[in-house]
Design a protein around this nucleic acid. Structure first.
Lengths: 204, 204
DNA sequence: CTAGACTTCAAACGATTGTTTGAAACGCCG
DNA sequence: CGGCGTTTCAAACAATCGTTTGAAGTCTAG
């Protein structure tokens, strides 16, 4: 089938595509640039993925399947232990994303790609994400509803919406904050997650 | 969509470009699509703007010049009257953007374009925005420094960074919140601004 | 070792990209 | 009216786009 000792052609394409999509956008990165960066033949994309659109979806699937699983796993653990609070539920949502972004193999790059997906008002991509991963947000929204019963539904939804915006923006490193020279990439991102949880908990 | 007689070719192009950039991205929207939507000749873009990149910059300039002026104007008024508080300074930042987004002529569309600019890690565009409008953020950061003297600098920058993220995301309407059927577009956006100010003030 | 399935390759497809060109049409002033 | 700078136009430019093709290469099961 596949899977050589090194990286398969599939994996090489996915890695290069992720990087170039983050840097130049989905329309801005061409398949020739992707295959050149991956050091594979141009036709390999259409052979392994069928089309550029399918490649884009696969770039998301590779990361989001595990990210969603970990988020829900943490949330379930919290609620089973009766430990659910604003801070811990936010932590269950943010920490898996933080860990992904710290993954040595370009996890931080993927967070930028994810933020691009939000910027795309493109309906195909948005419905793909909503159809496949919308249930995660639904579960977390339900958890917050239980934690903040005094808030009416509309009010809670507004705050959650704003919170997700702050998370997305920060994890994609859009801001002007530069890593302090003394800090490692890991320290920088852990700082960010800490501030994110604090800021969002206060806002909620 | 657009009128043909009363708007100059320049403005017709800018309007159509803004709309298509918001919808498909800077790389995703071609000059042929733009000129077709504007009902002008293809060559008009290069005649009036020189290149596609210059057109992109001009789309930003048209809106941001006035937006920046209004924000700083409000901030100055506040500080002259000694009325500067967390809420009022945030209001000085958010309300002009809200008013722009309520402009009948596609102001809300522009907010989506602006959010795309953040998603672009493209250095040309980011340095253009930073060079031309960075002083606005600097002035507001200074105002917050005066309002929150107990916070150390690094801590404040973190929170401001997260706040800007929430603002950008919300104003671009990326979220899942749908306008309630009873509400007008205006009511929807005014609600949003109110929640934004509250959420951000709490976080800061 | 051979047969057959899987993968890679160079080359080419038509379509579309941003940009340029030179002529035609326009609008204004004398 | 004629003349002239400004604007618009259809057409074409080379470059690049996503995708397809058929042959060459690689691998494994028998």
């Amino acid at each position: 089938m596949q899977q050589s000792a090194q990286f398969s052609t599939r994996q090489k394409i996915l890695g290069a595509a992720e990087e170039l999509f983050a840097e130049r956008g989905f329309a801005g990165a061409s398949l020739r640039q992707v295959t050149a960066a991956a050091k594979v033949n141009l036709a390999a994309v259409n052979y392994h993925f069928g089309s550029k659109d399918n490649l884009i979806e696969e770039v998301f699937r590779r990361r989001l399947d595990e990210l969603s699983r970990r988020r829900l796993e943490r949330l379930a653990t919290l609620e089973a232990a009766g430990d659910a609070s604003l801070d811990t539920v936010l932590d269950a949502f943010i920490t898996p994303a933080l860990e992904l972004s710290l993954d040595r193999k370009g996890g931080s790059v993927f967070m930028r790609v994810l933020a691009r997906a939000f910027a795309e008002h493109n309906s195909n991509l948005r419905t793909f994400l909503s159809d496949n991963y919308g249930y995660v947000l639904k579960d977390f929204a339900a958890a917050f509803t239980r934690l903040l019963p005094q808030l009416d539904k509309q009010e809670l939804y507004w705050r959650l919406d704003i919170a997700v915006g702050a998370l997305t923006y920060a994890m994609a490193d859009f801001g002007m904050i530069q890593r302090r020279s003394g800090d490692s990439e890991r320290e920088h991102r852990e700082q960010m997650a800490k501030h994110l949880i604090h800021f969002t908990a206060a806002g909620l």
